[in-house]
């Protein structure tokens, strides 16, 4: 294949990654922005979503779309429920002290991961996509006969991949409307701005925290449901999304939701493109070092404003 089609394929793959990453990172950013909690267990909620999706999809007979829809409902609920439980039983009791919450979420990470290993097992299992037809993409060239359009071999994508991108966009817009227009969104933003003042106005801050922690986990689980027909469910799959989400949240500016989404698209796309053309390990080394340096020299993130 020529360079042009190759690049477009890389961008398409990157866009799928970016879509899923935006959802996952949004969950992490939400939790950090509102609760000031660094949730190291975020990747495990992603994994939990994928595993529940597999479990739901295989236990429902009939058309794969039925199982997929059921998984998209059940998986975020389960992950969110587990997260709310974790918030109530652990995080709330250590009063969201930054150091203690990091240690506690590391603990929760291993608990979820190892319970998945004990129940789901070490195998990687796929979920059947609800629909998956190939779309061949056209390319053009200026040959001897002048301008012509043809379909290069292997140049194409699937309807499901396009659906993932679209679905993620719809969810992101919906979530933004929820945050900016709904009453609960208002309460959440009030808690983020000034916790004490929110308490004084009668906002049940501790319930808002539980809700936010659950929502963050549910977003990660939803992202996993979307990706699991492309990438198999495995008990160790939480590591990469966690690291990438961290990178995105840092580059986007800690706690800034708009920055998070811009950074997710940027990093998801470049991750996809770079790993097609370069060694993925080298790309990851450079990316992690760059991000660490961003945190060192521009702690407010590339898009964040300097604190006054």
């Amino acid at each position: 294949m020529e360079f042009g089609p190759h690049l477009i394929l890389a961008i398409l793959e990157g866009a799928v990654g970016a879509a899923v990453l935006a959802l996952t990172a949004l969950g992490l950013s939400l939790v950090f922005g509102i609760m000031r909690v660094v949730n190291v267990a975020h990747g495990e909620f992603f994994m939990l979503g994928a595993i529940v999706a597999w479990w739901v999809a295989t236990s429902i007979a009939g058309h794969p779309a039925l199982g997929f829809v059921a998984a998209a409902v059940v998986a975020p609920l389960v992950a969110g429920g587990v997260a709310v439980l974790g918030d109530r039983l652990v995080l709330k009791r250590v009063h969201y002290d930054p150091e203690a919450t990091i240690v506690a979420t590391i603990g929760i990470l291993y608990i979820i991961q190892q319970l998945a290993l004990m129940t789901y097992g070490p195998e990687a299992r796929p979920v059947e996509p609800p629909f998956n037809s190939r779309i061949a993409l056209p390319w053009f060239e200026f040959g001897e006969t002048g301008f012509e359009i043809y379909y290069p071999w292997g140049f194409g994508t699937t309807t499901y991949k396009l659906f993932v991108i679209g679905a993620a966009a719809v969810i992101l817009v919906g979530f933004w409307l929820f945050l900016s227009r709904s009453r609960i969104g208002l309460v959440m933003r009030a808690t983020q701005l000034d916790r004490e003042m929110a308490t004084a106005f009668g906002i049940p801050v501790s319930r808002v925290y539980s809700l936010v922690f659950g929502l963050g986990a549910a977003l990660a689980a939803l992202a996993a449901v979307l990706i699991v027909p492309i990438q198999q469910a495995h008990y160790l799959m939480g590591g990469d999304p966690l690291l990438l989400s961290f990178i995105v949240v840092i580059i986007g500016g800690l706690g800034s939701i708009r920055g998070t989404i811009v950074a997710a698209v940027l990093i998801g796309l470049s991750d996809g493109i770079i790993s097609v053309f370069f060694s993925p390990t080298l790309a990851k080394i450079i990316a992690t070092l760059l991000v660490a340096l961003v945190l060192v020299f521009r702690p407010q993130g590339l898009f964040g404003k300097k604190p006054a």
């Binding site: 660094v38 930054p98 060694s279 070092l289 660490a292 060192v296």
Partner: peptide
């Protein structure tokens, strides 16, 4: 020299990132 420019949560993440880069280098 690098990580001590940050404090708190950022310090933890920076050390985590550097260590991850070291791990990946060992693989690379």
């Amino acid at each position: 020299v690098l990580a001590l420019r940050t404090i708190g949560v950022a310090f933890m993440i920076v050390t985590l990132m550097f260590s991850q880069a070291a791990f990946l280098s060992a693989l690379y």
